[in-house]
Computed example of a mutant assay.
Amino acid sequence: MTVTRSRRSVPDRARRRAIRALAAQLGVAYSVAARLLEQQTRASLPHPSLPHPVDEHRAWMFAAREQRTFHSRVTDTRLAVDLPLGRAAHLVRRFPPMRATGGAGPLYAGDGRETVLSMLYAVLLHESPHRLPPRDELAWAAELGEETAVDFTCSDLDRAARLLLDQERWRLWARVDAALTAASNGTDRHLRDAAVTLGRELRSTSLRGSLDGARQTLDAVLVSTFGGDAPGTRTPTGIVTAVTWSSDGPPTGHEVATSDNVGAL
């Protein structure tokens, strides 16, 4: 006799893994960990008056991050101040792809998103080293274990990286190539090794499909500091897909996807 068993959905399996991991981390019962994650998930959802396409897997990932130990938080923030590669890796982990977008298309997507972000930071380290916060300030912010403190410290750098994506793409790639060439021939071993790694990616991988995801990632981290609606936020007119910025201050506008088109808010 053959018994057919249906596999649980991916979000359900991810939820159970997140609960088990949290229970082990906190030393509490599975049921207690489940309630904690449920509370975090509900708190992260928008107002019920605005129906929202919920990506359950992403919601559980956010909830699990909120339950990290202080040691784990410090490990993450130390990575977040390591430029150019570390901050890019941190942001990609922090803002995972959004699968349920209510017809707005992929958000925070692209296999090369981390590489694109790393290249943007490499350009700024080459062209505008004055934008890099002092090392002692970065180290102090990292040891707090608070992402918001690191975001505030790196906000000028993050904004400059975001604005690089507003220029014509061929100009961007030329600047990336120049920055990586300079770093690979430089004396800073850390930057030289990063440039060699990124140079291989630039010449062997198509990164075009990851540019929007990188833009949305930087939009999200800047919104956490300066306010506004991050990509994926449901508004009365549609779902935010991008944020527009000036050289300083809060957002100057939002691009919103409706059921028919994309418009400015």
Rank of each mutant, 00 (worst) to 15 (best):
I239T: 15
R215L: 05
A88F: 05
T77N: 09
P106F: 08
G228N: 06
T241P: 07
E127F: 05
A23H: 09
G145A: 08
R169I: 09
G102R: 10
L265A: 13
L107T: 11
R131E: 07
D156N: 05
L83A: 08
A141V: 10
W173N: 01
V150I: 09
T2L: 12
E66W: 02
D212L: 13
Q25N: 11
E201A: 15
H90P: 00
R131A: 04
L265R: 14
R17Q: 13
G186L: 07
S72K: 11
Q216H: 06
V176D: 06
A174E: 14
V81T: 15
L85P: 01
G112K: 03
L83W: 10
T187R: 11
D12N: 03
V54K: 07
N185S: 13
D193W: 06
P51K: 10
L163S: 04
V74W: 05
S6H: 09
A178R: 13
A80P: 04
N261E: 14
D111R: 12
I19H: 08
S118M: 07
A160T: 05
T187Y: 01
C154Q: 14
A178E: 14
F152K: 11
G238K: 08
L207T: 01
A59V: 06
L164W: 01
T115H: 04
V10Y: 09
R113E: 02
R135A: 15
S118A: 15
A160I: 03
R15K: 10
E114P: 03
L22H: 03
T197F: 12
E127N: 04
V74Q: 14
R42Q: 11
T77G: 11
M119G: 08
A63G: 07
W170Y: 09
T237H: 14
P134F: 07
Q167R: 13
T181S: 14
R99A: 12
D82Y: 05
T75G: 12
S247Y: 04
G105W: 09
R35T: 10
V74K: 11
D82F: 08
A18M: 08
T241R: 13
P251S: 11
V262M: 07
A174H: 10
Y30C: 01
V196R: 10
A64T: 10
S44E: 10
V81N: 08
D193R: 13
D188V: 13
H190R: 14
T115W: 01
G263P: 00
A33F: 06
E56K: 07
A24P: 00
R113C: 07
S259C: 04
T252F: 01
R93H: 12
Y121C: 00
D229I: 00
V262P: 03
G253K: 01
L191F: 03
T217M: 03
R171N: 10
G263K: 09
R58P: 00
R15F: 08
S118E: 03
T241W: 04
D158S: 09
V256K: 08
T237N: 12
R171Q: 13
T77I: 11
V150D: 01
G232T: 07
R171E: 14
L180Y: 05
A264D: 08
A18P: 07
T235K: 10
R234I: 11
S246D: 15
D188K: 02
A161I: 02
Q39V: 12
A242C: 05
A161W: 04
V221G: 02
M98K: 14
